[in-house]
Amino acid sequence: MGIEVNGTTFETDEEGYLVNLADWNEDIALELAKAENVEMTPSHWEVVNFLRGYYDEFQIAPAVRVLTKAIGKQLGPEKGNSKYLYELFPYGPAKQACKIAGLPKPTGCV
């Protein structure tokens, strides 16, 4: 499977997650978001960039509880709550945002 961006096909797994993290760029993120019916806004990018930084530091995609707590610490309590995150990523903030961020599926997500 794969996703085509600017004439190049990038490999994805059967659930649509990028296989090679190094392939990721913003154009790919936009294409993945489109496939998820997510309209990327500055708030979406904030979460996606946060996740990429978290992954760089810990080599793991956070589950939703960890994500909510970590975002609250870094971006403030008004963003560190599941209601806000589910508004941005209705199919699961951890799962959907990690996919758009080009990260593997978070541990504990089904």
Score class of each variant (00 low, 15 high):
44 H>W: 07
55 Y>P: 05
75 L>Y: 15
64 V>W: 05
7 G>W: 06
92 G>Q: 06
83 K>I: 12
35 A>D: 10
103 L>C: 13
84 Y>T: 07
30 L>F: 07
27 D>P: 08
63 A>T: 01
101 A>T: 04
80 G>N: 01
63 A>F: 12
39 E>R: 14
49 N>W: 11
53 G>A: 15
53 G>I: 03
38 V>C: 11
22 A>T: 12
86 Y>D: 08
34 K>V: 08
90 P>F: 11
2 G>I: 09
30 L>H: 10
78 E>W: 08
1 M>P: 08
25 N>T: 10
97 A>F: 00
93 P>R: 02
106 P>Q: 03
60 I>V: 14
59 Q>P: 03
8 T>Q: 13
39 E>T: 14
74 Q>C: 02
10 F>L: 00
91 Y>C: 04
103 L>E: 12
11 E>S: 14
77 P>H: 08
91 Y>I: 05
22 A>G: 03
90 P>R: 05
73 K>G: 04
108 G>K: 10
52 R>W: 07
70 A>I: 11
77 P>T: 07
15 E>D: 15
5 V>Q: 04
60 I>P: 00
30 L>M: 12
59 Q>S: 07
67 L>N: 01
7 G>L: 05
104 P>Y: 08
69 K>M: 10
86 Y>K: 10
2 G>Y: 01
39 E>H: 13
51 L>K: 10
49 N>T: 03
5 V>G: 03
51 L>H: 02
107 T>W: 14
60 I>L: 13
96 Q>S: 14
66 V>C: 05
59 Q>K: 09
13 D>M: 08
60 I>S: 11
92 G>M: 04
27 D>W: 08
36 E>T: 06
30 L>N: 12
64 V>N: 02
85 L>Q: 12
50 F>T: 04
1 M>I: 05
42 P>A: 10
84 Y>H: 11
14 E>Q: 15
65 R>E: 10
59 Q>D: 08
20 N>K: 15
59 Q>E: 11
32 L>A: 05
33 A>Q: 00
8 T>F: 12
76 G>H: 03
72 G>V: 03
55 Y>W: 07
64 V>Q: 09
110 V>Q: 11
101 A>E: 02
51 L>M: 15
23 D>A: 01
71 I>V: 15
93 P>Q: 07
33 A>C: 04
50 F>Y: 09
